[in-house]
Design a protein around this nucleic acid. Sequence first.
DNA 1: TGGAAAATATTGAATATTCAACAATTGAAG
DNA 2: CTTCAATTGTTGAATATTCAATATTTTCCA
Lengths: 147, 147
Amino acid sequence: MAKPPKDNSPITEHLAYLLAQANREINRQLEMRLSKEGVPVEQWRILKVLSDGNGHSMGELADAVLLNHPTLTKMVDRMVSDALVYRVQDPKDRRKVLMFVSDRGKALSKRLNSLAVSQEEHIVESYGDKSTNELKRLLESLIDSSN
Amino acid sequence: MAKPPKDNSPITEHLAYLLAQANREINRQLEMRLSKEGVPVEQWRILKVLSDGNGHSMGELADAVLLNHPTLTKMVDRMVSDALVYRVQDPKDRRKVLMFVSDRGKALSKRLNSLAVSQEEHIVESYGDKSTNELKRLLESLIDSSN
DNA sequence: TGGAAAATATTGAATATTCAACAATTGAAG
DNA sequence: CTTCAATTGTTGAATATTCAATATTTTCCA
């Protein structure tokens, strides 16, 4: 046991592949749920992070929502057009822009959270409570060990 | 214990987010390794799958390498230009195209596999043998339970 | 059999992402 | 202080991905 894959082992034995596969599948399911609100997964992330009510700089936000800076800038542009979020220049450091959720954004965020939670409940149902928590724990520690 | 996230829990408690985060990080690391050969992760997957020497239809291959059909078609176009793979019309079913690796592709595949294996060894070093295997097991069963 | 429906792969237009360059502001060193 | 480097965010061009439409072949069934 415990061997890393050999040169000739199938791709399905690689951790990188299994992660990509699982992520793709779970993300696809979540995307389907969120499509009820016509919103991509990334916008749910953005709204959720901003829902703490604090201002978040673009850099901070990009890290938190797993997007590159230019991609985030453009997605935020759309969300500003939709009046879900707004920009405020940081008075402490005028290079920075602080992002906030609007009331409309908060309301949408609530509905999206329900959909996301219900997806996870659905996963727990078929995958099991214990496995889900164990998997989360292992993913967290993998991420920790990678920094 | 064992609760799915509440409406107001941080995004970092969602399985979907943890998977995306872990996948992003591991994929980024692998990408850096493979950049030594100037090849994106998806091409490693394609070459690896085709390296069993059998012909694989585009549909089959798209599933295996986690790409949509049109994206795969265009990536294969590039790989054909680079003489890494080639197309043969399936004689049994002329709607299908069978993909094969060239010798050049095989040689590249070997080098890429080394890089991928060494990445996974590196993960095992810092993350641990036991955790790695347990994580793989859980990911496999998550994927199973999602079909 | 004949013809409609399904399966397979590709294409082109629309959309999204990324890379490199830029502008603005701050920090820091002389 | 002043200038130069680093940080932050945006932009535009280049690239990649996706969606819808198409072409081809096979399957099904009436």
